[in-house]
């Protein structure tokens, strides 16, 4: 019984990992791709690890899986934030279908005010 539930969870996890990869290929720019990559890959990997916990119980394997889940949940969004921020700062534009970019507007304001200070 536990084996069946574990295998179902692992299959679900692999499916979501697959959607994440598909998104990584199909979506237009780095920011959209990050969305697919973080969400689906986090959830998919969590599913696989949960399956391992269900199948193994609270042995040392299961406990390692729990720690793996914890670190994925903490690290994946942080990495996504760092990558997207770095991409924007180094001037990678949003895809053409994007309709608004408040970050770019504010960045221009910031550089303008800095330039004014330098001129004064």
């Amino acid at each position: 019984m536990t084996d069946t539930i574990g295998i179902i969870l692992i299959c679900l996890g692999v499916a979501f990992d697959f959607f994440g990869v598909l998104g990584l290929i199909r979506l237009p720019d780095v920011y959209n791709r990050l969305q697919a990559a973080t969400k689906c890959v986090t959830f998919g990997s969590m599913g696989i690890l949960l399956g391992v916990i269900v199948m193994q119980g609270f042995t040392s394997f299961g406990f390692k899986a729990i720690i793996g889940i914890l670190f994925i949940v903490l690290a994946a969004p942080t990495a996504a934030h760092a990558v997207s921020r770095a991409a924007h700062r180094s001037g990678i534009p949003l895809a053409k279908i994007s309709i608004v970019d408040k970050y770019e507007e504010d960045k221009e304001l910031k550089t303008e005010s800095v330039q004014k200070e330098i001129e004064v």
Binding site: F16, F19, L27, C40, L94, I99
Partner: peptide
């Protein structure tokens, strides 16, 4: 919310037209 998020992304990715309207808001 995470389950909803994943179903949403999965839907977007499979959809042949890619119905997205991205942008950065504050």
């Amino acid at each position: 919310e995470m389950i909803i998020a994943n179903l949403e992304v999965a839907y977007l990715v499979i959809h042949p037209m890619l119905p997205i309207k991205p942008g950065i808001v504050k």
